[in-house]
Design a protein around this nucleic acid. Structure first.
Lengths: 213, 213
DNA sequence: TCCGTAATTATTCAAGCGTATAATAACGAT
DNA sequence: ATCGTTATTATACGCTTGAATAATTACGGA
């Protein structure tokens, strides 16, 4: 009876691997399928190791949720600062949020699995709140820039209202577009969103060139 | 050792009670907290009875999901046909979906808990799809009526695009409004939505009277 | 009034869960 | 080379889970 050989990985690497394995489990079999044993097996370690890096399974799930939110924010907020026009930046922001990798079955699965915990566990609620506010704040600033660029006087509360509405629409389109995506094959979501935002902002065009195929 | 007394309830009543107990459990403790034993206890029966009415726990959860979706559709689609103006009907539709009982912590909890299963279990996917399409179809018709009423020629594909956008915004506002509702205390969601839809549809006013406090 | 049916309770079972603890071996320091 | 540290494995514990089965009792129809 020989013991299984192993190698000592760096703490950061191990934690990352464990979280990645956790997310794989959640994606494929839901939160219920993310058991300590299954996660350990997928990470190629034994279950005891999990408790060596996380004080409990719950704490590991929280870390995993943080990583998901951070990933979504990172992908979503890639608004190249070099783009001079605010309109172009807002357009890029919308497109980034309504195309892969944000619009993606895996991302949605993870998001949905965790969102059901937001109202049960206060720690999850805080993680969600932080992510939401970061997103909306970025959007609010973009809207203010666009309005200013169009020569309007951007009333802060007005900008916020626009941001809330646009944020809602992006969230909803992202959600339904991913859940029942096959229903949207004909018309790209990002196109709908852009035209809608243009109308919402009072007819400001977000693009000079026609939209791509 | 005397056996616990009981009474034989009608099948419909028992099934309803069991589903109600299931939803209570999910609301308070999430899907993971909805165990057969806990549900039975809350329904005032013993756990064996559940298997007498449902062939498995999964099947009972599916029935519960159907009931949640049906409830949301029922509450949401209360568009009084007697309202003559299509604009008034659309306005009522939007308000109904962005005020209680649709905007409600319990409704969201249940929705969120189930949505995470949509991508794991095909049966749940079908239930969701049916609900979504019913909702969007109703909205599509309302939009067509409003545009026709405004003297425009309602191109079907244009109506659908409007419906998708509006549906997305309602979904997103509903979701975020319930999740982080305290952030919206100042400005009512339904007001934001109505003004946004007005802009979206090209400036059509949905109301003659000013909005309530 | 009695009796058959089936709705309901009571009990049991095997599997899987998160957690705890002890043994071991990999690897850096010396 | 050797040693000490600790990352990692191995094993076990107690509990909960969904499901299965057997025993009962409520209730309608004769």
């Amino acid at each position: 009876m020989s013991r299984r050989p192993f190698h000592r990985a760096g703490e950061a690497e191990r934690r990352h691997d464990l979280i990645a394995a956790t997310l794989d489990c959640i994606f494929e079999r839901g939160l219920q399928g993310a058991t300590v044993r299954e996660i350990a097996a997928r990470a190629g370690v034994t279950q005891g190791l999990i408790r060596h890096y996380f004080s409990s399974k719950d704490q590991m799930l929280q870390a995993a949720y943080k990583e998901v939110m951070a990933g979504m924010t990172r992908d979503a907020a890639v608004v190249d600062e070099s783009l001079k026009d605010a309109r172009t930046r807002l357009r890029a922001f919308i497109i980034a949020n309504l195309t892969p990798p944000v619009v993606d079955g895996r991302t949605l699965s993870l998001w949905a699995a965790f969102i059901s915990h937001v109202r049960v566990d206060p720690v999850f609620a805080e993680i969600h709140r932080d992510g939401y506010l970061a997103f909306r704040t970025a959007l609010e600033r973009l809207v203010a820039d666009v309005l200013a660029e169009a020569g309007q006087d951007p009333d802060p509360s007005e900008c916020r209202e626009f941001a809330i509405a646009i944020n809602g629409m992006i969230d909803g389109l992202w959600l339904e577009g991913t859940l029942v995506g096959d229903l949207f094959s004909k018309t790209p979501l990002s196109g709908i969103a852009i035209r809608s935002v243009e109308a919402l902002l009072g007819g400001i065009r977000l693009t000079g060139n026609e939209e791509p195929s």
